[in-house]
Amino acid sequence: MSTSNPNFVLMVEGLTVSFDGFKAVNDLSFYVEPNECRVIIGPNGAGKTTVLDLICGRTKATSGSVNFKGQELLNMREDQIVHAGVGRKFQTPSVYEDLTVFENLELSYPKGHGVFGALTFRRDDQVKARIKEIAETIFLDDQLDEKAAYLSHGQKQWLEIGMLLIQDPELLMLDEPVAGMSVAERKKTAELLNRIIQDRSVIVIEHDMGFVEDIATRVTVLHQGKTLSEGSMERVQNDPKVIEVYLGH
């Protein structure tokens, strides 16, 4: 692995976070290229979600560096990281249940994010057209006026993906996007993700191996907060260390 390649979108180096002495992520380094889809896999408690939390600023790192297009993310506030171009989807669907699908998408539209901007935000045709377009992508164009609370679990996942899409982030981070979905929904989601991971870098946490094989450019296997193995799906699958701690059972 080369270290100071300017062609990387994201460079994570020596990332460590310690919770009362327990190192959930321990001296982790990895690099994401433009348009790469990186999948992070690993057993429960390996620190996968924590890595995403650290990158997007939800958890403060103890040491290390997260460099996104030349900016150090570790010193930035969550909303500044979003504006730098990093989008994050949570594991459980996080949508605004009391608002309609339209309003959910509208709040993610990248305009009027200050207090004054939000007060004077106008729903112009451009906003409406963009929301309509995204709604079609996420199969929800018939439910625009429905409250998000009435959507199915799968539809909520899609809605949250849509909320990220409308932000158009350069780096998209997805935490188990197909968890808890029915077979039909899962298939549709895979198709959706395959479409939206074009033209941007993506980090995905996923357990479903069939799905991982489908979308991954490269795979990082985490174990106890450290990289156990990294490379193509094929290489990782045949790595004896990986088979022992993860894929074997």
Binding site: E78, D79, V82, F90, H113, M163
Partner: peptide
């Protein structure tokens, strides 16, 4: 205004609002 809807959104999912780029 959009701010009013943001308040409702914050009440339900503060983290989602934060990670949609709002302070």
């Amino acid at each position: 205004s959009k701010l009013g809807r943001l308040l409702i959104a914050m009440r339900d999912q503060e983290d989602r609002v934060r990670f949609s780029g709002y302070d």
